[in-house]
């Protein structure tokens, strides 16, 4: 009733204004993203000039404050980041998809109403708290299981990141399972398939691209995480040889060194170069997640 009354000359002006406002905020997001990329590029260029691409891309030693010879190789940190993230996804993806399937197809509405908010609350735990748990609980636990002297290693980081990526994976997977038209599963059930068969053969394949996207987004979350890995992985600079070794990720290295670095020194620019690498990785992961999600939407329509 009210909306009808409001329409008229003023209503049109208002509509137009709101339309512009939303358009502007959308543009602003793009501008900010472009700005960040430009800033990173601008501040990384001197690093590549002073260090050289070869050393940056191929050396495994990163020691900018070395009294012998400063070195700026990002390979060990890239390997550590990739390793921890892959480990986290190996743990979180199967579990996340299982929970999502359970919530969308098996659980009673009552259980779903209780479990879903709890899963989402998991995302609200501050990363420093997760790191603290890693340091004081998961670490000593891993040390005892694997008979190590300490638990500050890549596996610890992977476990924690898996926990942190779970909410993303679960809620996006569940959304895409729910987006599968009801007619698909009704047809399957009518043909005599049970819930398990319907889930495995019909629903998950139909929602596959959404589930893939959830994996990518979870991965993006894990790669960018800083505080947790900083606290739990020990931050040793050596090239990683296994999951039970202490590692240092790109994010942790930036966090450790940016606070004290003299402005506009080679070291300062090198840290921005690491930032650029990180930005590109997460950008492409999120971009591919978006592309996959878009594809699924079109397919199901």
């Amino acid at each position: 009733m009210r909306s009808v009354k409001k329409k008229g000359v003023f209503g049109d002006v208002r509509e137009g204004f709101i339309h512009r406002l939303f358009q502007a905020s959308g543009m602003l997001a793009i501008l900010i993203l472009a700005g960040i990329l430009a800033l990173l590029l601008y501040t990384s260029v001197p690093a590549f000039k002073e260090i050289g691409f070869k050393e940056f891309l191929t050396s495994t030693r990163w020691d900018p404050t070395s009294p012998e010879k400063p070195e700026y190789g990002f390979l060990s940190m890239l390997a550590s980041t990739v390793m921890i993230t892959m480990g986290a996804m190996l743990l979180a993806f199967p579990l996340g998809v299982a929970v999502a399937s359970y919530l969308s197809d098996v659980a009673s509405p009552r259980v779903r109403e209780i479990v879903k908010p709890i899963v989402e609350l998991l995302a609200a735990i501050p990363s420093v708290v997760v790191g603290f748990i890693g340091l004081n609980l998961v670490g000593p636990f891993l040390a005892r299981i694997f008979n190590l002297s300490n638990g500050l290693n890549a596996l610890n980081g992977s476990l924690l990141l898996a926990i942190m990526a779970l909410p993303t994976i679960i809620s996006i997977s569940e959304d895409s399972l729910n987006a599968v038209p009801a007619a698909y599963s009704e047809a399957s059930l009518a043909l005599g398939a049970n819930v398990w068969q319907t889930l495995i053969k019909i629903k998950i394949p139909a929602a596959a691209s959404g589930i893939m996207a959830s994996l990518m987004l979870g991965m993006g979350r894990a790669i960018g995480e800083t505080m947790t890995v900083l606290m739990a992985t020990g931050n040793a600079r050596a090239f990683p040889h296994g999951f039970l070794q202490s590692v240092r990720t790109l994010t942790a290295n930036i966090a450790i060194e940016l606070g004290e670095v003299p402005f506009f020194s080679t070291h300062y620019y090198a840290l921005f170069a690491l930032g650029l690498v990180l930005f590109l990785i997460t950008f492409f992961i999120n971009l591919s997640a978006d592309v996959i999600l878009e594809k699924q939407k079109r397919k199901l329509q």
Partner: peptide, 28 residues
């Protein structure tokens, strides 16, 4: 003597964390 640290050194956030870690680590 102005030589590099071993890359295996686990780099902690502060003195208190080092104490905490060595307390728990028999080989630390």
């Amino acid at each position: 003597n102005n030589k590099n640290y071993s890359p295996e050194v686990k780099e902690m956030n502060g003195n208190a964390q080092i104490i905490e870690a060595v307390t728990q680590d028999a080989a630390g």
